[in-house]
């Protein structure tokens, strides 16, 4: 079971577009089935297997529920492992990222909540556009480089999204 594909763990076929609610339902059902508490009276070997199964299930869920991680996983399944940490040189995108971070810094100073909400909307729209673009090209091996570039952009935007949420929490306090 250890080498089972992340999608197969949830009886899903590899796909970028997935229903996250449905994934959550499948995850909770499987998680109950392999919950260590249910194997309290089992033998040591079985207990260990269940623990491994449970850990693998959590890993798979963490990867599949995040668009950039799911994208990286799909490309890795087909083309081999893609490193998590690389240096990207994608000038126009990076210039835009720098501008967005400057804006976020200003929002932090001004504590302007409506403006922060608008920023968040813009970020979400950009993430959706990236997801749409990725969906159109990832299965075409001739467009591998483009798919990787889009996946890297998704990683940046997800990180930015975390920072937006952190800032929201700080401003809420």
């Amino acid at each position: 079971m250890g080498n089972l594909c992340h999608f197969a763990r949830f009886d899903l076929k590899p796909a970028f577009r997935i229903d996250l609610d449905d994934l959550g339902v499948r995850y909770r059902k499987r998680a109950r089935e392999v919950h260590p508490d249910r194997f309290a009276d089992a033998g040591e070997r079985e207990k260990r297997q269940v623990l491994e199964e449970s850990a693998a299930l959590n890993d798979a869920y963490q990867v599949l529920r995040s668009a950039p991680m799911r994208a990286r996983y799909l490309l890795s399944l087909r083309d081999g492992e893609l490193p998590l940490e690389v240096t990207v040189q994608d000038p126009d995108f990076l210039i835009q990222q720098m501008q967005w971070r400057e804006e976020l810094e200003e929002l932090q100073d001004s504590a302007d909540l409506p403006a922060l909400a608008a920023f968040k909307q813009r970020l979400k729209a950009a993430q959706e556009r990236l997801n749409d673009d990725f969906e159109l090209c990832w299965q075409d091996s001739a467009r591998h480089a483009e798919a990787v570039r889009l996946m890297r952009r998704m990683q940046f935007l997800e990180k930015l999204n975390h920072e937006v949420r952190d800032l929201e929490e700080r401003l809420d306090d």
């Binding site: 950039p68 998590l84 940490e85 690389v86 240096t87 990207v88 040189q89 994608d90 000038p91 990076l94 210039i95 990222q97 720098m98 971070r101 890297r152 952009r153 990683q155 940046f156 997800e158 990180k159 930015l160 975390h162 920072e163």
Partner: peptide
């Protein structure tokens, strides 16, 4: 030089 590290979200000019 504009470079970035996607997993950390770092952007460097």
């Amino acid at each position: 030089g504009m470079v970035g590290a996607p997993a950390c979200g770092d952007v460097m000019r």
